Simulated assay, not measured.
Amino acid sequence: MELTQANYYEHDTDFKYMSVSIFKDFMKCEAATLAMLKEDWQPNRDNTALLVGNWLHSFFESQEAHDKFKSDNAKFIYKYGNSDKGIKSQYKQADSMISVLKHDEAFTNVYEPGQKEVIVTGKIDGYPWKGKIDSLVLDHGYFCDLKTTADIHKGIYDPEVRHRVPFVKAYGYYMQMAVYQELIKQQFGVECQPFIFAVSKQDPPDKMAIDFNSVDDGYELDGALEFIKDNQKRVWDVMNGEIKPKRCGKCEYCRMTNMIENFTHASEIEVD
């Protein structure tokens, strides 16, 4: 299946190419993710954060892309869905985030020259993967990803290590950068350095340019790819119906479809 800007996010393509976002969802709950991909169930979630992120991305992609995004999502963006009433407060804040970036020399010089929304594909240990690069600058050997977050410096609790970690680690961005780096290398034959430009949703917004050049960052990137290699066969087997998906037992989908099958000892109730 040929990937295009029009079909990239369609679930049909997710059964042909793995993506970082879908892989991470499978790591949380196989049953919920499979049901979502098969369109048997959709999570009940507020998409405002996603739309705010897309507001920024489309702005820095092109005026045409930004106008199309506003037109396609008018009922969410404008008060009462009416453009004459003005944009909602979240998007006013997003405009502040845009302002701090477009007036920053480092962002202007590094992010803006790149080719935007570049679709890349390749294989990781024989399994097909896809990615979409926010800003790709092949002739200088780097790519950029634009991220929004509540607070760049706020630690997020990681139950695996039992302490707070930076948002880059908590949200799986090492994995994303490692996959994109590998797919770019396969498709274009260029080893590209990853960068993240992060902007916060605070008032006023904070911003940061993030590289992955330390020794520890290298370990994290390598470890993320190894984690994928160790787990992706099971994910594909679940998607292809060869094995039954596991239920996490705690997510929205599992709560909704849960059936009592036996008793649980009071002393053995799992807690987070």
Rank of each mutant, 00 (worst) to 15 (best):
V190W: 01
K75L: 05
F60N: 06
K147I: 12
F15W: 04
Y8S: 11
I98W: 12
K147Y: 05
E160Y: 01
D211G: 08
I98S: 11
V215H: 11
S214I: 08
D125F: 01
K233R: 10
L146G: 10
K116N: 13
N44I: 03
D217A: 15
T149G: 05
P128D: 07
S19A: 12
A150K: 13
E268L: 09
I119W: 05
V235I: 14
T108M: 09
I196Y: 06
S71P: 01
P43H: 13
A35H: 02
G249N: 01
C192R: 04
E252V: 04
D217Y: 10
Y157W: 07
A209H: 08
D222I: 02
M36V: 12
F15N: 05
I133P: 01
K75F: 07
K79T: 11
L183V: 04
K102P: 06
T148Q: 04
D272Y: 14
G172I: 04
F263N: 13
I87H: 05
H153L: 14
Q63Y: 01
G122L: 03
A198Y: 12
K102E: 14
V20E: 05
I119V: 10
N73R: 02
G218L: 04
F15D: 04
T33L: 06
D134F: 14
K68Q: 04
Y91G: 11
K207T: 10
Y8E: 08
